[in-house]
């Protein structure tokens, strides 16, 4: 049981939050706003799944916010030029994978630290996007929002896509050799190498996957509104990393489950709505999020200290 201690703690915290909302602010659970809120959290979930894989393989990617913004605009521009939605989706995911591949080459094959590499690509994509779009809102053609369907249907599609992704990724991490490669690389790259796994290929693949997921996340975001903003990805990297860390993904690699990431995501994402519903000022959100991250790592630190002695 202690193996899933973190997941259980976060689940308990989330349960507590939901329960107190149910008692003291039941209108939180009104169907339409509740579903809208959940839908709006799905892009970050997709990104958090990607970042969890990256962290499990003992790397980090802080460029995903920029990748997300870039992919959203690429998809938007593609769609605005009259091409079908499918092409736009493909373009977004492809662009994300390409940006991830650049990170992957620099980290995996040139041996550069991922924190600096992704810092550099983050700045590069972000500013390239600003230069390109000049901060303009991009109006999307009709038929993009909610995939051209009704809002409830569109929301259902977004939510189910994200959950299919989550279930698929969690299943793959457990049942596919690839999942084991990622775990092994993050636990002990040298042992992985001796076992015949090439940690470089694994790391590269994880970064490409991360980019692709950032593209998918951008698509899930794109279809929720009639416009797309170039700065829509700002801060996404922190949200995603925080969700993963709070959900029990160890920053030292090799440990973590995607279910924990889901729980961490939901807990952090609901801080702000909960504040509103408890009639508390919303500007405490960031401070509380920071505190939750610190609590999670401190708990990790104390636990590993105990096991050491």
């Amino acid at each position: 049981m202690s193996k899933y201690f973190r997941e259980l703690t976060v689940a308990a915290a989330l349960g507590l939050l939901m329960a107190s909302l149910a008692i003291f602010a039941p209108h939180f659970f009104q169907w339409q706003p509740f579903i809208s809120r959940l839908t709006s959290q799905m892009p970050a979930l997709a990104a958090a799944i990607g970042i969890a894989l990256v962290i499990i393989s003992r790397q980090i990617d802080i460029s995903i916010g920029s990748q997300f913004g870039m992919c959203a605009i690429i998809a938007g521009v593609t769609a605005a030029s009259g091409l079908p939605l499918g092409v736009a989706i493909f373009a977004a995911i492809g662009a994300g994978a390409a940006m991830g591949a650049l990170n992957g080459v620099l980290v995996a094959y040139l041996g550069l630290p991922s924190i600096v590499v992704t810092l550099a690509t983050m700045v590069t994509w972000q500013e390239a996007l600003r230069l390109w779009q000049q901060g303009r809102l991009l109006n999307l053609p009709a038929g993009i929002q909610w995939f051209g369907l009704s809002q409830p249907t569109g929301q259902a599609i977004v939510i189910s896509l994200a959950f299919v992704l989550l279930v698929g990724a969690a299943w793959g991490m457990k049942n596919l050799a690839a999942g084991r490669f990622i775990h092994a690389t993050g636990t002990d790259a040298e042992a992985a190498r001796l076992a015949g796994i090439d940690p470089r290929h694994t790391t590269f693949a994880v970064f490409v996957l991360m980019g692709g997921l950032a593209g998918l996340a951008a698509v899930l975001n794109l279809v929720q509104s009639p416009q797309v903003q170039p700065n829509c990805g700002d801060g996404l990297e922190l949200k995603a990393i925080a969700a993963a860390v709070v959900g029990g993904v160890a920053i030292s690699g090799g440990r973590g489950t995607l279910w924990g990431v889901l729980l961490g995501m939901l807990l952090l994402a609901n801080v702000n709505p909960a504040l509103t519903h408890f009639h508390q000022p919303p500007y405490w959100e960031k401070a509380i999020q920071g505190l939750v991250i610190l609590l999670a790592v401190v708990a990790d630190g104390i636990r590993s200290r105990k096991t050491k002695i």
Binding site: I115, A287, I293, L294, V297, G301, R305
Partner: peptide
């Protein structure tokens, strides 16, 4: 947090990154 609890600097300062900014926002409403 970094030296006494042996936590990775990246993640500790990511937490305080959020915390400090959040406190600033909270203080100024």
């Amino acid at each position: 947090l970094i030296t006494r609890l042996n936590l990775p600097p990246l993640i500790v300062t990511l937490g305080t990154f959020s915390l400090f900014r959040g406190l600033a926002e909270a203080l100024t409403k």
